[in-house]
């Protein structure tokens, strides 16, 4: 469905997106992960045809986004990371307006609006003014707007940002429904465990470069050579830290009241080696617990925890 080839975007000499390549097959939900300023929004805006790249190509459903912009827009639904609503319109008028911009007739738009408002659970707010809606409702309305022309490909930039936990769960449920409807979705989010639940594959972007891409499981497995271990000691905490620092392959170490977090390279063998060294040096180890790899840890490892 989406094919991105060597996409590059420069802003006054600053490289925002650097030779990015990406492929999303039909029916996939692709999570786009990256720190603030990593280039997620820029990439998504280019894919949506809202920004010209410095170089590179983007195809959606085989159509060149920059050569046939109007044709490709029939297939894209775009939800930015801001509301973008007209406060002086009622909910159904808002939907009518965008239906009009997509060339959908008034009669057809009414039926579509009804079913979309049902999908985003806003049917009871149909006659309400947009400015009376809560933040979560506005987000859902924006999602409904992006679906008015029944696009096959959705670009959702931080759809759950700023939402309270309940609204986030509601949004996730709606996205799952869209997945079951067979939509291909490119979604960016900061809430990584939600992405890992929802997405079939993910891409991690750092400083404009796509540093990892594939199914969530593949990426977690690829990163399994890097371990995080939680070690609890009953005493000699400082001595334990000193010993750990001497062991080759140990990355970062942090300790708080008897619990030492260790990042190290290597698989199970490395764990055995560390535990053996500590026991041989008479460190009273109470527990030694490898931390299961999550999207968060993978993200932190890949991006080296740097805020952009």
């Amino acid at each position: 469905m989406l094919h991105v080839e060597n996409l590059t975007k420069r802003y006054n000499g600053t490289l925002a997106v650097d030779r990015l390549n990406m492929d999303i097959p039909e029916g996939e939900i692709y999570g786009f992960v990256g720190a603030n300023g990593a280039g997620k929004t820029t990439t998504m805006r280019i894919i949506a045809g809202l920004l010209a790249p410095s170089s590179g190509k983007v195809f959606i459903g085989g159509i060149d986004v920059f050569k046939e912009p109007l044709e490709v827009k029939k297939h894209i639904g775009y939800m930015p990371d801001f509301f973008g609503v007209y406060d002086d319109l009622k909910v159904y008028e808002y939907m009518d307006f965008y239906a009009g911009l997509y060339g959908i007739s008034k009669q057809k738009s009414r039926g579509l609006t009804d079913s979309l408002l049902e999908l985003v659970r806003l049917t009871n707010k149909k006659d309400a003014y947009v400015d009376t809606l809560s933040r979560g409702m506005k987000q859902r309305l924006c999602l409904a707007r992006s679906l008015i022309h029944d696009p096959e490909f959705l670009i959702l930039d931080e759809p759950a940002s700023g939402l309270d936990p309940r609204a986030r769960v509601e949004m996730t449920e709606i996205l799952k429904e869209l997945r079951s409807l067979g939509k291909t979705i490119l979604i960016s989010s900061h809430i990584l465990h939600e992405l890992s639940e929802l997405c079939t594959s993910i891409g991690i972007i750092d400083a404009g470069k796509l540093i990892a891409s594939g199914s969530v499981q593949d990426i977690l497995e690829k990163m399994s050579h890097a371990n995080q271990v939680k070690i609890r000691v009953s005493s000699k905490e400082e001595e334990a830290v000193k010993i750990l620092m001497e062991i080759p392959g140990i990355g970062s170490i942090s300790s708080v009241v008897g619990v030492i977090d260790v990042n190290m390279e290597g698989g199970d063998e490395a764990c055995v080696r560390v535990l053996k060294t500590l026991v041989e040096r008479d460190i009273p180890v109470v527990s030694f617990q490898p931390v299961e790899s999550s999207l968060e840890t993978v993200f932190m490892q890949l991006t080296k925890g740097e805020e952009q």
Partner: peptide, 14 residues
Amino acid sequence: ERQTLDLMLVTKTP
């Protein structure tokens, strides 16, 4: 300023 321009430009209205 209202951030609605992109939403119009992303439609098939030229």
